[in-house]
């Protein structure tokens, strides 16, 4: 090592040169815009794909999409869904979910239930602020899930499209599970897309 280089090294060591180097970087950042944002005054922009609270959806005419097939229950890796299905008392021969529970305390937000649903009745929304003082309110029942679905219907539709569950908004109107009529009396007209 040359004398010059050695001197430089000694000087650097004495003057804590590496500290100055680092301070340079730090000081440069004083002129940057801060990257932190002030939650909850500022909110993150949530992407359409975001897997937030689950919601049950209705068709445009207000009918429940869910037919109570229990496949979400089977698909759920944390076993947090419970569907009680039954024959719809108002619409004979039609299956529906008389009760539907999602235990949000157990839910892992994997989105498998949405993927499994054969009628796209479930969707995830951008809702993530549902913390509460009472753990019991985190057992989402059918009413609550439909409420979320009504309120965040746009999120839900965007989610389904973003996750390749639906092609476009038009398609979502078409699925309609067709139940057979009773031999005793007509219970519903055959759907258009089937006739």
């Amino acid at each position: 090592m040359s004398v010059g280089a050695l001197t430089k090294k000694i000087l650097q060591a004495m003057l804590f040169h590496e500290i100055w180097d680092a301070m340079k970087v730090t000081f440069k950042h004083m002129f940057h815009r801060p990257i932190t944002f002030q939650y909850p005054r500022e909110q993150r922009t949530i992407p359409d794909t975001h897997r937030g609270a689950l919601a049950l959806l209705r068709y445009d005419d207000g009918r429940e999409r869910c037919v109570g097939c229990d496949l979400c229950e089977a698909a759920c890796p944390s076993r947090c869904i419970k569907v009680v299905s039954a024959e719809d008392p108002s619409l004979p021969l039609q299956r529906y979910a008389s009760e539907f529970y999602i235990d949000i305390t157990k839910c892992v937000f994997c989105g498998y239930c949405v993927e499994a649903c054969p009628v796209n009745a479930l969707a995830m929304t951008k809702l993530y602020e549902f913390s509460t003082h009472d753990k019991r309110t985190l057992l989402f029942d059918k009413t609550r899930l439909y409420q979320i679905g009504e309120r965040y219907i746009e999120d839900g539709k965007k989610y389904l499209i973003a996750h390749h569950q639906e092609k476009d908004d038009q398609m979502s109107r078409e699925y309609r599970y067709y139940f057979p009529q009773s031999v005793l009396k007509a219970t519903q007209a055959p759907p258009k897309h089937l006739s």
């Binding site: 496949l71 089977a74 698909a75 993927e115 499994a116 054969p118 009628v119 796209n120 078409e174």
Partner: peptide, 19 residues
Amino acid sequence: KERVFTNLDSMIQQFKLFS
């Protein structure tokens, strides 16, 4: 997924794989 709604073979596949 879009085939699941309209085609039986895909629906069966969906149900078998998930259940």
